[in-house]
Design a protein around this nucleic acid. Structure first.
Lengths: 230, 230
DNA sequence: CGTGTTATTGAAGTGTATCAAATTGCGTGG
DNA sequence: CCACGCAATTTGATACACTTCAATAACACG
């Protein structure tokens, strides 16, 4: 993994993305401790943070940009398992289960990443037990989402999953134009099916396609089609 | 939820299932604390521990028997999300994410269940911070399995998932004869497909069916067919 | 001993993947 | 900044794995 160190080290103290993360409640001295031990890098789209099979050596904190967790199946087809934006923590699950990463982390949009070594995290947890609870809460939420995805994949049609994907991706990553291939990898289907379904949705007036960009015209109808219940 | 209290309260101190759970390293005084606050019940097959939508009020500890986590989709079809045997903890995820249960817990084989209230767990965690880490490790492992299931459902054929299911169910629940319907609900397919696939596997000499019981004859070949990689 | 669930088999339909080929659009380097 | 090249997109044809529906048989259970 190659990293481009950033000259001027930002401080976690005034990192906006922190406000959304589980580090937000840390005391100043703990923030300083992280500051002293973290590694800050800029990563261009396409770069790997880590590969499936690697052991977990720390936590990747997304300050800006977008990162995807990708897994290859036996046929070489790739699946997007999770997507992270600014404020997200990546790779902390492997830290606690002491298993190698299940998937690879790939930068989707140029990103600033802070890497915090495992020892630093563990030190911090032993000093501030409250942090373990924060991780528990975070992991519980991630788990809930994973469980929901499992249910959806096993009971929703491709069209429903694609509708879901459109909503989810727009909701969480406003600006990015995801490719048909990426949408397919997230919705567990093929680019062809995505394209045909998008054409269908456009005919029904739920979305509009201009080149590669997709605009959601009728969010309500799309929601119904996706069968997501909030 | 109806419970049949057990007259003679067992002590967690000599509960065999504890050796496999994250409570195994607790000090005597903490075990005693749990003993004083837990509720022990016997549950018959078919009974519900909790329903999807219920708020999480504590942890269910399986002392003996088998419990499944079941979810209904929009079409009324049920899916088995997780299966628990003795030594398993159920419902702790909802405790930390403070969301209602996603699924219902149903006893599959007559079970002895200990219920430990949320407040007791939280008290314990605040006293012994190490316990939070234990929960983290447990949840991380459960998460890993959930992630793997997601990948399998999205990339494996029904036959592959059924082969997986046979191995998994036999591995973890030696004695139980799961119904074709249950196998289907675990493998995200239909009873008919399970039956046809079982006939296929029998013809290939990988399994033998005697009435409702299924015997794995060629575990190695079944493993290859399941595409599980260890 | 009946009664409802589970198992089985068959026929039919269809959603979705797959393959191939043409076209578009974008990023990159000259 | 333009042109090139390659990846993304699109469309059509085909195949088939799997679901669905229906009807019967076998079993378990109270």
């Amino acid at each position: 993994m190659q990293k481009d160190p950033i000259g001027t080290k930002h401080s976690c103290g005034n990192c906006e993305s922190r406000s959304q993360s589980l580090f937000c409640s840390l005391k100043k001295q703990d923030i300083d401790f992280i500051d002293q031990n973290k590694f800050q890098t800029r990563q261009k789209a396409g770069q790997y943070l880590f590969y499936a099979g690697n052991p977990g050596t720390g936590i990747y904190c997304v300050t800006s940009g977008t990162v995807k967790l990708e897994a290859l199946d036996e046929n070489g087809k790739s699946h997007i398992v999770q997507i992270f934006k600014d404020g997200s923590l990546i790779g902390y699950r492997a830290l606690f289960s002491d298993e190698p990463y299940q998937s690879s982390a790939i930068v989707v949009e140029d990103a600033e990443i802070c890497f915090i070594p495992k020892t630093t995290i563990m030190d911090l947890i032993s000093k501030t037990p409250d942090l373990a609870m924060k991780f528990l809460m975070q992991l519980s939420n991630d788990f809930r989402q994973m469980e929901q995805r499992l249910k959806r994949v096993s009971s929703h049609s491709a069209a429903e999953r694609i509708a879901e994907a459109l909503l989810f991706l727009r909701e969480n990553f406003h600006d990015k134009n995801w490719t048909r291939k990426e949408i397919a990898e997230w919705a567990s289907t093929t680019p062809e099916t995505v394209i045909r379904t998008l054409a269908e949705l456009e005919k029904e007036g739920l979305i509009e396609q201009k080149g590669r960009s997709i605009k959601i015209v009728n969010r309500q109808k799309l929601l119904e089609k996706s069968k997501i219940t909030f």
